[in-house]
């Protein structure tokens, strides 16, 4: 990479799905990835989408355009992974930004890893912000649970998968969304190979795989180590914990504090290792 070369950021955009109504929309994490890219100074942003443009997904794709980009490169009719690889290679990007997992289909979150493997680049997931871009490396912030953050330095080129805790994507405006272009890309080297591979992959598993609307997972019951019939009977017949809460009136402040701390420790939200 020459010294004067600007950072080129490929942003992978997919069609999302609203969690309540299942309507197509911009995928939340991908939009956050685009937001991160747009906030980088002196970076060329290359938005990529692999798939077909149709009535069902046009509005969703356009809502990325509404964030203020002039065009999305559309890589049509190929295996997603191969399409992405080619798209990224041809765009000469040195950073790939994407969401952690898709909102439709399997949504396994494997694609960024597979892409990184194919490109031979390192991957960092859980990205919340890009602090600094140097020649050949980037300083990142990674999300840890409970709002904690960790600083990482990664050598470029790299694939960066954005965490749901990253900054919320800007509003999508109607005007730019309508005017922006979705440009189909002609990629040179995919052709027949990809077709064969797609068939191969789908033959492998799709006949076994079934999708259903998500079932509500049963709440885990308290495990009762019932060694006798009597214990089992008692456990089965025991009145469920009263749904109404416990109300303590006229207790001393100390007792009240003890009750609170007891519950906090039970729920393990209180970390006693912390500073005083």
């Amino acid at each position: 990479m020459s010294l004067n070369q600007a950072t080129r950021v490929a942003v992978l955009l997919s069609i999302g799905q609203h969690p309540v109504t299942a309507r197509a929309r911009r995928a939340d994490q991908d939009a956050r990835a685009l937001e991160l890219a747009l906030q980088l100074n002196h970076a060329d942003v290359i938005p990529l989408h692999v798939g077909q443009l149709n009535e069902h997904n046009e509005a969703a794709l356009r809502s990325y355009l509404g964030m203020g980009i002039s065009q999305i490169k559309l890589i049509g009719n190929s295996d997603i992974l191969l399409g992405l690889e080619q798209g990224v290679r041809e765009s000469q990007a040195n950073i790939v930004l994407c969401g952690s997992r898709a909102e439709t289909g399997e949504g396994s979150g494997l694609v960024p890893y597979l892409l990184a493997k194919k490109l031979g680049w390192p991957i960092v997931s859980g990205l919340v912000s890009i602090e600094k871009l140097d020649q050949g490396s980037a300083t990142l912030l990674q999300a840890l649970p409970r709002g904690q953050r960790r600083k990482l330095k990664v050598s470029l080129p790299a694939v960066l998968a954005v965490d749901p805790a990253a900054a919320v994507a800007r509003q999508s405006a109607f005007g730019p969304a309508q005017r922006g272009a979705i440009t189909p890309q002609k990629l040179s080297s995919i052709e027949a190979v990809s077709g064969a591979e797609v068939k191969h992959n789908s033959a492998l598993h799709s006949f076994l795989w079934q999708f259903q609307p998500a079932k509500k997972r049963p709440k885990r019951l308290k495990i009762i180590k019932a060694t006798s019939a009597r214990d089992r009977f008692k456990a089965a017949a025991a009145k469920a914990d009263a749904s109404g809460g416990k109300v303590l009136q006229g207790v001393s402040a100390d007792d009240a504090a003890n009750e609170i701390i007891k519950l906090l420790l039970e729920e393990s939200v209180l970390n006693l290792d912390g500073h005083l």
């Binding site: 609203h18 309540v20 109504t21 929309r25 509404g66 800007r170 509003q171 405006a173 109607f174 730019p176």
Partner: peptide, 22 residues
């Protein structure tokens, strides 16, 4: 501001997204 710039302040953007999706 809303249609061209996408600058509906505070909860505005969220409300509009909700109206579109739900």
């Amino acid at each position: 501001l809303t249609l061209e710039r996408g600058q509906t302040p505070n909860k505005g953007a969220e409300v509009i997204d909700n109206l579109i999706a739900t």
